[in-house]
């Protein structure tokens, strides 16, 4: 039960002019859950995700992974935790421009194991094919298009078979078609390996496809929606802003919801 538990997480930026990015977030994500975090720009989604990813330490509050208090550990211990347990898809899909596609995908593996053996290279190639950038296997990362870089970053997040994947806008730069296939890929990995996903997204299509949707507003959890009890259209209606309550297929519902 690879639970992630957040307890009273507060994050305040700056000293002279302080911005409160998170004001007391309590959240438990059970192992294998496929969760979305939504909210307006500036609401604190990335801040929350960075804390979940142990990249940032909260001003206050605790985080436990499988019962282990993470922020009590040293930076190096956290680095080890990240490389062993977490996969990242960043909002700005950071690849290393000095390395090619394959090398970028192998980075987390090599950070953890030093050398990439044949099996690791095969696995990396498989993942690259899976995200559809096979033809760009040996291209340098800075020669790839935004969408290609995004997909390489997804393949990279998967190479160490992490237990938790944290994704910040994973389909931000993708066209609808690729976006669909990436969405399907992430979901398939979640189903196959019971990998926990926490996906920050503005895309209601993605959010609607998640087990759970957590809405952040002004640094607090405003809504925590479990979609498994709702039908697709009900979910869609819940997630839609008031002025566009169309169904997922784009048609208006027969009767306005109560």
């Amino acid at each position: 039960m690879a639970d992630i538990e957040l307890e009273g997480i507060r994050k305040v930026y700056g000293t002279a002019i302080s911005t409160v990015a998170l004001r007391g977030v309590d959240l438990t994500v059970p192992a294998g859950e496929y969760a979305a975090i939504i909210g307006r720009s500036g609401s604190g989604k990335s801040t929350l995700l960075n804390i979940l990813g142990t990249l940032d330490r909260p001003t206050e509050g605790r985080m436990r992974f499988e019962g282990r208090d993470l922020f009590a550990a040293s930076d190096d211990k956290l680095a080890e935790f990240r490389s062993g347990t977490l996969g990242f898809i960043f909002q700005f899909h950071y690849l290393l421009p000095e390395f090619n596609t394959l090398e970028n995908v192998l980075l987390p593996y090599r950070i953890r194991h030093g050398r990439a053996d044949g099996a690791a290279v095969r696995r990396a190639k498989e993942l690259i094919e899976k995200v559809g950038v096979g033809p760009r296997m040996y291209n340098r990362a800075n020669n790839l298009s935004g969408g290609e870089q995004q997909r390489v970053a997804i393949a990279r997040s998967l190479i160490n078979a992490p237990r938790v994947i944290l994704a910040d806008e994973p389909t931000g730069n993708l066209d609808t078609e690729t976006s669909e296939s990436v969405k399907g890929l992430l979901r398939a990995i979640n189903r196959e390996f019971k990998t926990t996903f926490i996906i920050v997204t503005h895309d209601r299509h993605i959010a609607a496809g998640c087990d759970r949707v957590i809405e952040i507003e002004d640094g607090s959890i405003k809504r925590d929606l479990s979609t498994s009890e709702l039908s697709r259209d009900e979910t869609w209606a819940e997630l839609a802003p008031c002025n566009c309550r169309e169904r997922e297929d784009g048609r208006l519902p027969a009767a306005p919801p109560a």
């Binding site: 190096d76 490389s83 977490l86 960043f90 290393l96 980075l107 950070i111």
Partner: peptide, 16 residues
């Protein structure tokens, strides 16, 4: 610094 940040985020340790 960008690359260093990514490598650290991906789990590279201070000493490495």
């Amino acid at each position: 610094s960008r690359q260093i940040g990514i490598l650290k985020a991906l789990g590279m340790k201070t000493r490495q």
